[in-house]
Measured scan of single mutants.
Amino acid sequence: SADYSSLTVVQLKDLLTKRNLSVGGLKNELVQRLIKDDEESKGE
């Protein structure tokens, strides 16, 4: 998976916004949300 932890919070929020995901929470939560979304989209 992508190394989201190396991105800035601003970059993470931009990715979340593009996916229509919540941008609330700490950086670690944003990273986990993106990883979870990646895993769910692979399952389709």
Rank of each mutant, 00 (worst) to 15 (best):
S1G: 12
S1D: 09
S1N: 12
S1F: 14
A2S: 12
A2K: 13
A2R: 14
A2M: 15
A2P: 14
A2Q: 13
D3N: 11
D3C: 14
D3A: 10
D3V: 09
D3P: 10
D3M: 11
D3T: 09
D3Q: 10
Y4C: 04
Y4A: 01
Y4M: 01
Y4H: 01
Y4V: 01
Y4F: 03
Y4R: 01
Y4E: 00
Y4G: 00
Y4Q: 01
S5P: 06
S5Q: 12
S5Y: 15
S5K: 09
S5E: 13
S5T: 11
S5D: 11
S5R: 09
S5H: 14
S6P: 04
S6M: 11
S6A: 11
S6N: 11
S6F: 08
S6T: 11
L7R: 03
L7D: 00
L7F: 08
L7A: 03
L7G: 00
L7C: 07
T8L: 05
T8A: 05
T8V: 02
T8P: 05
T8D: 07
T8R: 04
V9Y: 08
V9L: 12
V9S: 05
V9E: 08
V9T: 08
V9F: 07
V10T: 14
V10S: 15
V10C: 12
V10R: 14
V10D: 15
V10N: 14
Q11I: 06
Q11Y: 04
Q11E: 12
Q11T: 05
Q11A: 07
Q11V: 06
Q11G: 04
Q11R: 05
Q11K: 06
L12E: 00
L12N: 00
L12T: 00
L12C: 01
L12M: 02
L12A: 00
L12K: 00
L12D: 00
L12F: 00
L12V: 02
K13G: 03
K13E: 06
K13C: 07
K13H: 07
K13I: 14
D14T: 10
D14C: 12
D14Y: 14
D14E: 15
D14R: 12
D14H: 12
D14K: 13
D14S: 10
L15W: 04
L15R: 04
L15D: 03
L15H: 04
L16F: 01
L16W: 00
L16Q: 01
L16V: 02
L16C: 10
L16G: 00
T17M: 13
T17Y: 11
T17L: 14
K18D: 07
K18V: 07
K18M: 10
K18N: 08
K18Q: 12
K18H: 08
K18W: 06
R19M: 03
R19S: 02
R19I: 03
R19A: 03
R19W: 03
R19Q: 02
R19K: 05
N20T: 05
N20Y: 06
N20S: 07
N20G: 15
N20A: 07
L21M: 06
L21N: 02
L21H: 03
L21C: 04
L21R: 03
L21K: 05
L21F: 01
L21A: 02
L21P: 02
S22Q: 08
S22F: 09
S22P: 15
S22H: 10
S22G: 08
S22D: 10
S22V: 06
S22N: 08
S22C: 07
V23Y: 06
V23N: 07
V23F: 06
V23I: 12
V23W: 06
V23P: 08
V23D: 07
V23L: 09
V23E: 06
G24E: 15
G24W: 12
G24I: 15
G24S: 15
G24C: 14
G24L: 15
G24M: 15
G24T: 15
G24P: 03
G25V: 01
G25L: 02
G25K: 01
G25A: 03
G25S: 01
L26P: 11
L26M: 11
L26H: 12
L26N: 15
L26W: 07
L26Q: 12
L26D: 15
K27R: 09
K27P: 06
K27C: 05
K27W: 08
K27D: 03
K27S: 04
N28D: 15
N28M: 11
N28Q: 12
N28A: 14
N28H: 15
N28W: 15
E29N: 05
E29W: 03
E29H: 06
L30C: 05
L30G: 00
V31F: 02
V31S: 03
V31L: 06
Q32G: 07
Q32N: 13
Q32A: 13
R33W: 04
R33N: 03
R33C: 03
R33S: 03
R33E: 03
R33M: 05
R33Y: 04
L34D: 02
L34T: 01
L34K: 00
L34F: 01
L34P: 01
L34I: 04
L34M: 02
I35K: 08
I35S: 06
I35R: 08
I35M: 11
I35P: 02
I35Q: 10
I35G: 03
I35T: 08
K36N: 11
K36H: 10
D37V: 03
D37F: 13
D37H: 12
D37E: 04
D37M: 05
D37W: 13
D37R: 04
D38P: 01
D38L: 05
D38T: 04
D38Q: 04
D38V: 04
D38F: 04
D38M: 05
D38A: 04
E39M: 13
E39V: 09
E39W: 11
E39C: 09
E39H: 09
E40K: 13
E40Q: 13
E40M: 13
E40I: 11
E40T: 11
S41F: 09
S41G: 10
S41D: 08
S41I: 10
S41M: 12
S41Y: 08
S41Q: 14
S41K: 15
S41T: 12
K42M: 11
K42C: 06
K42Q: 11
K42V: 10
K42H: 11
K42P: 07
G43S: 12
G43L: 14
G43R: 14
G43E: 11
G43V: 12
G43D: 10
E44W: 13
E44C: 11
E44L: 14
E44R: 12
E44V: 14
E44T: 13
